[in-house]
Design a protein around this nucleic acid. Structure first.
Lengths: 204, 204
DNA sequence: GGAAAATATAAACAGTGTTCAGTAAATTTG
DNA sequence: CAAATTTACTGAACACTGTTTATATTTTCC
């Protein structure tokens, strides 16, 4: 019978409707400032209805995160295209930092906010991000196979490169670079220079 | 007259009482989960009283942050002692990362949480952290004067080193390293190796 | 001692995430 | 088709949150 199929489809549509509203509000207002009531109002349902489709606000965020990572992976697909491993690593780093700086609220949800990681505590690993991390890890491995970078351990390499990229983006997103007392324009240049410098340093 | 002096002293004592309670609760429960009501209960005053001493919850956090940075600076005073510039840079990096990993909740308040930076928006710079940043900057400048590191611009150097250190700590504190699917022991080793590797890389 | 000033608080406001009893609609069953 | 049952939804409530305000208490000053 096609009824249960339609029901399931309607359920997914409703879930999408909720998530779409949530994404929009999380990105414009931030996670904390977006309330279930606001989301409910936007989709013209009662707040309680949302709980029929998502367990709690954290699950909502987890779902939004999922979509954010899909966006990041799409960006990588577009911008990380070179066949030369080190060139590809360069593209990956720059693409990552550009993405973070261009979408600070999204970056916050993906890599900085504390909320949704609690609910993943019990589970093994953190699914949302594993694809992107694998892309980095594999690119680095390939670089190492060709002797293009000065790393010996691929995991150390992955952690280092990610840490550098994340550090640059997150210090900016969290406004901690105010300690440097420089203007926005200068900051962009310094960030760019830091990445270039770092890639130069790891090149063998 | 000594009355106004006593009044001022009592005022500072009350401020300290509030902050002490706040620190304790922020570190054990986190900023978001600590309520003004909880703090008030702990010091046995009404919630409204707190507002006679601090403008709002953000100002409370800003004050707690201040003390956290004093703790960080004390740690640096103890652990960053070498007269050799590069050796001192090494001590600084390791001390920073160790501090962050040993005090994740405090690190969160200092470098990750979003809340208190908003209220600093208008002001120029971010006072709390400027001493530590200056220590890093000056150490790097000294290294450069002696030709010990491969950086040309001290600001690029400071941003790079800070980004690397902050990246390593914050990815861990925010649980994002779950993407790497490794155990705690391995993680400590990888982090250590990443710092060593980085210091090796920037050495000229 | 009594006016003035400083200090503390109970109560209220407007908001939050979440739960639950109860209603209305859609579906299945007899 | 009508009755019974399942599904979808919601209003109201609960237990919180940060913050403000009018009121009460204490302290200082003349």
């Amino acid at each position: 019978m096609g009824i249960s199929e339609r029901k399931e489809r309607e359920r997914q549509e409703m879930r999408a409707k909720i998530i779409d509203a949530a994404i929009g509000m999380f990105l414009t207002e931030g996670y904390e400032k977006t309330s279930i009531r606001n989301i409910a109002e936007k989709i013209e349902y009662s707040p309680a209805t949302i709980y029929l489709y998502y367990k709690d606000k954290d699950e909502l965020l987890y779902e939004v995160q999922k979509q954010a990572f899909e966006k990041l992976e799409e960006t990588f697909d577009r911008e990380v295209t070179s066949t030369h491993p080190f060139e590809r690593l360069t593209q990956l780093c720059k693409s990552y930092v550009r993405f973070g700086r261009a979408n600070p609220e999204m970056y916050d949800l993906m890599f900085m906010i504390k909320a949704p990681m609690n609910c993943v505590e019990a589970e093994d690993g953190w699914d949302n991000n594993s694809d992107s991390f694998m892309l980095l890890l594999n690119t680095l491995k390939e670089c190492m196979e060709h002797g293009l970078i000065r790393f010996k351990d691929p995991m150390v390499a992955a952690l280092s490169v990610w840490a550098m990229g994340h550090g640059l983006v997150s210090l900016d997103v969290s406004c901690r670079l105010k300690a440097m007392q420089i203007d926005e324009h200068m900051l962009v240049q310094l960030t760019e220079a830091s990445i270039d410098q770092y890639l130069e340093l790891i090149k063998s």
